[in-house]
């Protein structure tokens, strides 16, 4: 799932400093699940902004709305008319939602309420961790299902660097060394010999370095 977190209030208040009428639009997709941009967060943000603006001596008229998803045209279509009546629409979706609104609703001045952080999993209540980098060239079958691209500080391909100590990454003792884990995992599966293979230099075009990515499935095209 896409993990996001709300931008700091200061940044948001600056963002809406010239806005008199604001519509906050949440998303019931990933960001609702990671408690960043669902109905509840929309209400909280709306109240916080009202207070913040008032405290700064301003005035703002805030309305709230939450869409099923902001990454599907059918859900955001009505937003073009509705959003145009506001000085700005503050989207609480991930970056995808903000972009999609910007693309599809030309009359709407859309602003991001969240920082879209990573693709991750919910470790426990209130804790999320990056698990995938969306690099477009998955090697998980070679690494015991653990991603060195997303989870190694240097995205190494051929085993742990010299900074791996006690299963921890050198950059931060709170960070696991994923190569240690890969090694352990493959060892337990009696597959550690596979790690002798040199993983060749990667092709990063699929990771976005070849320009914005796009996927087409002919069979599904209208």
């Amino acid at each position: 799932m896409i993990i996001a977190e709300r931008k700091p209030m200061k940044e948001l208040l600056e963002m809406v400093s010239d806005v008199k009428r604001l519509l906050i639009v949440g998303c019931r997709g990933c960001v609702a699940v990671c408690s960043a941009g669902g109905d509840k967060e929309v209400s909280i943000l709306s109240a916080a902004l009202r207070l913040g603006v008032k405290r700064a001596g301003g005035e703002i008229d805030i309305h709230e709305d939450t869409l099923v998803r902001q990454c599907d045209p059918e859900y955001i279509e009505p937003l073009n008319d509705k959003g145009a009546k506001y000085d700005a629409v503050l989207s609480m979706a991930c970056g995808v939602g903000v972009n999609f609104v910007a693309d599809r609703c030309p009359d709407v001045n859309v602003l991001p309420a969240l920082n879209t952080t990573f693709y991750g999993a919910n470790l426990s209540s209130g804790e999320w961790k990056e698990m995938c980098a969306g690099c477009g060239a998955c090697v998980l079958h070679l690494t015991g299902g653990l991603c060195p691209v997303a989870r190694c500080a240097k995205s190494l391909s051929n085993g742990p660097c010299g900074g791996s100590q006690g299963g921890r990454c050198e950059i931060n003792p709170d960070v696991d060394c994923i190569w240690q884990q890969i090694y352990d995992k493959l060892s337990s599966m009696n597959r550690k010999e596979e790690l002798r293979q040199i993983m060749p230099i990667r092709d990063w075009t699929t990771a976005g370095h070849g320009g914005p990515r796009r996927r087409i499935r002919e069979d599904l095209l209208p």
Binding site: G159, P160, G162, S164, G167, C177, Y183, D184, R196, I198
Partner: peptide, 17 residues
């Protein structure tokens, strides 16, 4: 090569690579 990093047994393997 760092003979003192972990996992120790993998270090020579990595050097071999």
């Amino acid at each position: 090569a760092n003979p003192f990093a972990d996992p120790f047994e993998f270090r020579p393997v990595r050097l071999a690579k």
